[in-house]
Amino acid sequence: MEWTGARYADKPTVEVRIWVDAPPERVWEFVSDVELMPEMSDELQTVEWLDGATRPALGARFIGRSRHAALGEWATTSHIVECEPGRVLAWAVQDPAQPSAIWRFRLEPRDGGTELSQWMQMGPGRSGLCSAIDRMPDKEQKIVFVRMREFERSMTVTLAHIKTLAEA
């Protein structure tokens, strides 16, 4: 687990990894089922494919509805920007050219199983966090740090959940 960057404009990132005792094809079943993600998250409440999509493919879109005690409730549209079955799935939140975040799963065959990583980048496009930073610019680094730690904890739970499902 590591994260980099201190200010929003730095596009800070965080990545979490776990080894799964299952082949990448099996792990992919759960990674690629974005409608399953709310079961693994305190924040993400629902996910719904848009435009008739039913699974990840380049350019496919889905809407995610989230809730956070300090940030309220919101919905975002995500765009699949990388999709290689059994290897990588990534989506850009809101505007793919200026996303408020990018999320990525990577699957690598390792030691008879799969090394699964989840990575995210905050920014460069504006997100709900920017309102808090606008109100308290002197606390930007702390706001970003706290949010990145929340993401790290959530990602750790998500990967552990995927591991449990894939190994069952």
Rank of each mutant, 00 (worst) to 15 (best):
A6C: 09
R7D: 09
R7K: 15
K11R: 15
T13L: 01
V14A: 05
V16D: 07
R17Q: 13
I18Q: 08
V20K: 02
V20Y: 00
V20W: 00
D21H: 13
P23V: 10
P23M: 06
R26I: 15
V27C: 10
W28M: 06
V31M: 02
S32W: 10
D33S: 10
E35D: 15
L36V: 03
P38N: 06
E39K: 13
S41V: 07
S41L: 03
E43I: 06
L44W: 01
L44V: 14
W49H: 04
W49D: 10
L50G: 04
L50R: 12
L50K: 09
D51F: 01
D51W: 00
T54N: 12
T54E: 13
R55M: 11
P56F: 04
A57I: 02
A57W: 05
A57Q: 12
L58I: 14
G59C: 10
A60Y: 01
S66R: 09
S66N: 13
A69R: 13
L71F: 10
T77I: 13
T77R: 13
S78H: 04
S78N: 09
I80W: 00
I80N: 05
V81S: 06
V81P: 01
E84T: 12
V88W: 04
W91I: 05
A92Q: 01
A97M: 07
P99N: 08
P99A: 09
A101F: 07
W103P: 05
W103V: 11
R104A: 15
E108G: 03
R110I: 10
D111H: 15
D111Y: 14
G112P: 04
G112N: 03
G113D: 06
T114W: 00
E115I: 06
S117M: 08
Q118A: 01
M120F: 08
Q121M: 10
M122P: 00
G123V: 02
P124W: 01
G125P: 02
G125S: 00
G125F: 04
R126V: 01
S127I: 03
G128T: 02
L129T: 02
C130V: 04
S131P: 00
A132G: 02
I133Y: 06
M136L: 07
M136K: 09
P137W: 07
D138L: 13
D138F: 13
D138T: 11
K139E: 07
V146Q: 10
M148A: 05
E150C: 02
E152Y: 07
E152C: 07
R153N: 08
R153V: 05
M155V: 11
M155I: 12
T156F: 05
V157H: 12
T158M: 09
T158Y: 01
A160S: 13
I162K: 02
I162Q: 02
L165I: 11
A168C: 08
